[in-house]
């Protein structure tokens, strides 16, 4: 009996592990979103640069915590051809603009009020940071934020900028 149920168990195990596959580098879905300082930012227009897309919201504590650190990353690696895009996912962007007055950032803040971009990137946690290489491919997705993760961000940006 034990041996007979083995194929069934194997099938069950296959079903369980199917969800955990590492994504291969794939082209980043293009988007165009309104920016905080007016105008639109299109991802494909940043081809040739290393882009870090950070999905954030004001109700998300870790997102608020990493925002000043992201500003430091932009200041440090901007000259290497690096651009950070902060994509706010809230339906009402008033809270974000008010909060950013107390935490000033220089990189573009985009408003994804209908969550279309968050959906196209399959965001699975808040905050999520998507690293896009110079060829416009998604190379790495970082979910969540813990103190110290910023050094991982820096390592990734450096290695992608060298390519």
């Amino acid at each position: 009996m034990r041996l007979r149920s083995l194929p069934a168990l194997l099938l069950l195990a296959a079903g369980l592990t199917a969800g955990a596959t590492a994504p291969a580098p794939s082209p980043a879905p293009d988007f165009s979103l309104p920016a905080r300082d007016g105008g639109e930012v299109r991802l494909s227009s940043l081809k040739g640069q290393v882009v870090m897309i950070n999905f954030w919201a004001t109700w998300c504590g870790p997102c608020r915590k990493e925002m000043p650190l992201l500003e430091q990353l932009q200041a440090k690696y901007g000259p290497l051809g690096f651009t950070l895009l902060g994509v706010n996912v809230e339906p009402d962007s008033a809270a974000a603009t008010a909060w950013l007055k107390s935490v000033p950032v220089s990189f573009p803040i985009l408003f994804d009020t209908r969550n279309a971009v968050a959906e196209s990137f399959g965001v699975q946690g808040m905050p999520s940071s998507v690293f896009v290489d110079r060829a416009g491919r998604v190379r790495y997705v970082h979910r969540g934020y813990q103190p110290g993760d910023e050094s991982q961000y820096a390592d990734l940006i450096r290695s992608l900028a060298k390519e």
Binding site: L16, A57, C60, N115, A118, V123, M126
Partner: peptide, 18 residues
């Protein structure tokens, strides 16, 4: 079992938690 493990997803997405 296999269908149950791969089919069900949280329908409130992480970016909709407000």
């Amino acid at each position: 079992g296999a269908a149950g493990c791969s089919g069900v997803e949280p329908w409130v997405k992480p970016y909709e938690r407000q």
